[in-house]
Simulated assay, not measured.
Amino acid sequence: MTDGNGGVSRRAFVRTAGGLTATAAATGTASAQNESGSGSSGGTTHTVDMTDGLVFDPDSLTIAPGDTVEWPNVGSVGHSVTFYDDGIPEGATYFASGGFSSEEEARTGWSNGEGNVAGGESVSHTFETTGTYEYFCIPHENAGMVAEIEVVEGGGSSGGGDSGPSVPQVPDTAKTLGVATVFSMVATLGLAFFFLKYGGDYEEELEA
């Protein structure tokens, strides 16, 4: 089953994954360079490793608009980072390692030795448009090397070593001090109540 660009449909290969081996897949030779969309400054950078196990790690990530994703190749087998044309939000900037402007160009470029991210190299992209982005590695698409990124307001990363907004933690010393303060207040109120209730009777008994 093929897509409109003559490539293997991701929906088909997910169900029939398998076939390529690591030794036969590293066909690209062009040096990959860091690339990014027109991103805004101040966003968080997330990391998705490309491994010799033919996976993106993590294969699912949730980020915020303006965040950047970096894909380092932590192994020795060549990979690509290639968006599906129909797997990105409307109006979003297309991205593929090698600087291609469409999935078809990326596939053609790979066959000509372009777009390869060799071991030790990396590419990156800044995401501005909210929505779901589906992408894949051209030489290992049939092996199931696909992933997705969800861009939502507020972020809420589900992987890549990043975490959501931190919750302020109360130091143990502050907790202890708070407990002691409350106990002192309760004790003081208790004593005040006792003297107010029984203080007059006690003085009358002494006068008698």
Rank of each mutant, 00 (worst) to 15 (best):
A12P: 00
V14E: 07
G18Q: 10
G19F: 05
G19A: 05
G19Q: 12
A22R: 15
A25D: 01
A25R: 11
A26V: 01
T27F: 10
G28T: 00
G28E: 00
A30H: 11
A30D: 14
S31V: 15
G37D: 01
S38K: 12
S38D: 13
S41Y: 02
G42A: 05
T44S: 02
T47L: 13
V48H: 02
D49N: 15
M50G: 11
T51A: 12
D52V: 05
D52F: 12
G53T: 14
L54V: 03
V55S: 10
V55A: 12
F56T: 00
D57W: 07
D59T: 08
A64Q: 08
P65V: 09
T68K: 10
T68C: 08
T68G: 06
V69Y: 06
W71Y: 14
W71H: 05
P72A: 03
N73H: 06
V74P: 11
G75M: 03
S76E: 11
V77F: 00
H79L: 01
S80P: 00
V81S: 05
T82I: 05
T82H: 01
F83P: 02
F83T: 09
D86N: 14
E90M: 03
E90K: 09
G91F: 09
G91H: 05
T93P: 04
T93A: 13
G99H: 02
S102H: 03
E103F: 06
E104D: 12
A106V: 07
A106S: 12
R107L: 09
T108V: 12
W110A: 08
W110D: 02
G113Q: 14
G113M: 11
E114W: 04
A118I: 00
G119H: 01
S122I: 06
S122D: 07
V123S: 10
V123Q: 05
V123Y: 08
H125M: 11
F127E: 05
T129V: 14
T130N: 07
T130I: 13
G131C: 04
T132V: 14
Y135L: 15
F136E: 08
F136N: 05
C137T: 10
C137Y: 08
I138L: 09
I138A: 09
